[in-house]
Nucleic acid binder design. Structure first.
Lengths: 220, 220
DNA sequence: CGAATAATCTATCGATCGGTATTATATTAT
DNA sequence: ATAATATAATACCGATCGATAGATTATTCG
């Protein structure tokens, strides 16, 4: 769970003044789609207020400025859509199903009709990584975390004898994340949902295959 | 070779008026770095004129507007830095060396100290793919082309008996491009040149390995 | 009922955006 | 020289940028 900005008590305490109409999470979800479509620089306050349905000052009272809103939107994405692939991965008991589910959910989210193509993090925030150090740190942390969780699972499966110890679990985890990133790029470049889904089986097989990291191994 | 805008006769004909100081290719190379750093929306005319060293109207006389300049910059990138990995791939006679060179050059370009991190196409233009259809088309075309060239080479190697026919050459090609995209994302997310280069051997081995696309194949 | 409080919106800020009309400058042709 | 021509820079355009001051509205407390 991320806590970049102040929390919002769930059963909101009846307080004195005018009742709040801005629902933080809802507004964030709308903002996510705007940033996802246009990137940070391309997401104007006009687009953001239009999408969230609240005025500029209301948005600024909840989030400090556009930059903070962007960071909060990245968190919201990572806690929501961005977390689904890993959740699906961890929900499967069979490692083959788990890898498949990870890529399948990822592919579907990258081409979901209700959202922009690709991945907010891999396709949009990544652009801002060069100029906004905290965005880069956020992306790096997110990748590291997912990779660590996947790696841990792979290590368990090696112990269970379900996965070969070669290549090492951490390399296998890196590979799975690489293929996730690549799917996002492909989706953003226009690859259709069907095409992407057709590739899931092959990608899952690659991740699960026994592939010695020793480059001298014969390929023929 | 791309020809989005008017060509510039190489031994420029001595013409009547004031001699031209703007060197199209040089200006484009500078513009590439600005877009690469800031993305399309973040690359202001002020940054672009500062980088190219010419004034706004001069830039507009050579390229029609910011959008056209961006498209031309993408072309310049693809014809230059973006073409190096494929060139290195095709320059190697041994397929193992070729795959390694492709990933190695790609990794080095993604972390070159003289340029922004990552890849202009995969990390910056990709953001604009959602809002600028011709950018998306350009990316798609570029990917397709590289993939086709790699695929053709793989097919030849299968005929030569240097590569197994399973997985099919086109899947192997897709995989190599996926790993290239993933390297770009990783570089942009902050992965160091050394870390990236350390992964090249493993990635090359994955591409070269015999990995049946049949998902039922045992992974243990 | 006011008074106090809190959240909202209208209207507007200066700065910067992409883009251009105009003028200045450097060359060749006559 | 002077005219013709081509390129470049100065200065500025309206529009939009992110951000905010101040007025407005809706609620609770006394």
């Amino acid at each position: 769970m991320n806590a970049t900005t102040a929390p919002q008590p769930s059963p909101r305490k009846r307080s004195r003044g005018r009742p709040r109409v801005l629902e933080r999470q809802t507004a964030l979800d709308q903002a996510v789609d705007v940033f996802w479509d246009h990137g940070y620089e391309g997401a104007s306050l006009e687009l953001l207020t239009e999408a969230t349905g609240v005025s500029r000052p209301t948005l600024y009272s909840a989030f400090n400025d556009k930059r903070s809103l962007f960071l909060a939107a990245i968190d919201a994405y990572e806690d929501g859509i961005g977390a689904e692939a890993l959740a699906a991965f961890e929900a499967e008991s069979d490692i083959r199903s788990a890898v498949h589910a990870f890529l399948d959910v990822s592919a579907r989210n990258n081409t979901h009709p209700d959202h922009p193509a690709g991945c907010l993090v891999a396709c949009c925030a990544i652009t801002s990584a060069q100029t906004m150090p905290d965005v880069r740190a956020k992306i790096e942390h997110s990748f590291r975390r997912t990779e660590a969780r996947v790696c841990a699972r792979f290590e368990r499966e090696v112990e269970n004898g379900e996965l070969s110890s070669e290549p090492p679990a951490n390399e296998r985890a890196k590979l799975l994340l690489d293929l996730m990133s690549a799917q996002a790029v492909r989706a953003r470049a226009g690859e259709s949902r069907d095409d992407l889904l057709r590739g899931v089986n092959a990608r899952a097989a690659i991740v699960l295959a026994h592939m010695p990291s020793d480059a001298k191994d014969k390929a023929r």
